[in-house]
């Protein structure tokens, strides 16, 4: 359960601080599939980074499963990320010198999970994204879709309960994007809380709920299936 109350994030730029998020309050239930939409620069990534404990709100409260995490130390936030949160990025963020297998191993290496355990869990994670046969390929030997599937395996190998994806299909063609979304949705169906930042209304419509951001504020909250094609356009009014 994620609870945001009056969350604000501002950057000290020049005399007037730049407010990227202002007074955002929201509840995200366990196992929910949430889409975050809005024009570029509206604060979607900022919100996602705060949800993922990569960044801290400058004001307001963020409770994760009842625990206030907005004010935790940097080390404590690392710990939260390590065990509770998985990230998927638009640009994959795979490490080029490492094979798919080794990329998936990274979070477990950091968490100090024993080698034997690691091996089994990597196989499971790669199997879940259908890439066991590519385990020893490097990212430059994989297609964009395959890279993102490796990234999903990496994001889920620690069995987090929240999966955060920032425009996960942004660098992919429609077919590959569709495959990635189906993967993410399947994991959501298995109980993972899924938050996806997207520009694609089709993805929004598939989600349980859509938050529309504009200028750092939530301007619309609708169930995904009620999202009309012109909703984003309308919210500007």
């Amino acid at each position: 359960m994620i609870e945001l109350d009056g969350v604000q994030r501002s950057y000290p730029v020049g005399a007037e601080p730049l407010v990227a998020l202002k007074d955002v309050s929201a509840r995200i239930a366990k196992g929910e599939y949430l889409a975050v939409m809005g024009p570029s620069g509206s604060g979607k990534s900022t919100l996602l980074n705060i949800l993922g404990c990569l960044d801290r709100p400058t004001a307001g409260s963020y409770r994760l499963d009842g625990r206030e995490v907005g004010t935790l130390s940097a080390d404590a936030l690392s710990e939260v990320r390590r065990h509770h949160i998985g990230f998927v990025f638009q640009s994959f963020h795979l490490i080029g010198r490492l094979s798919a297998h080794e990329n998936v191993a990274l979070p477990m290496l950091l968490a100090g999970i024993p080698e034997d355990d690691r091996r089994a869990r990597i196989s499971t994670a790669l199997d879940a994204v259908g890439l066991v046969h590519r385990a020893h390929h490097r990212p430059n030997e994989l297609s964009g879709g395959e890279c993102q599937r490796v990234a999903i395996a990496r994001a889920t190998v620690m069995r987090p309960h929240i999966l955060l994806a920032d425009e996960p299909t942004g660098n992919l063609d429609t077919a590959n994007g569709e495959q990635i979304m189906r993967l993410l949705e399947r994991m959501n169906a298995d109980g993972l809380t899924l938050v996806v930042v997207t520009h694609d209304p089709n993805i929004g419509r598939r989600s349980d709920r859509v938050l529309v951001l504009r200028d750092g504020e939530i301007v619309q909250r609708v169930p995904g299936r009620e999202l009309r094609p012109d909703a984003l356009f309308e919210s500007r009014a």
Binding site: L54, S78, R81, I95, P107, M158
Partner: peptide, 15 residues
């Protein structure tokens, strides 16, 4: 970028 990724998957600044 690699440093950012390592931080995202749980590495502390000290690590």
């Amino acid at each position: 970028g690699e440093i950012g990724l390592l931080r995202a998957v749980g590495a502390t600044a000290r690590e």
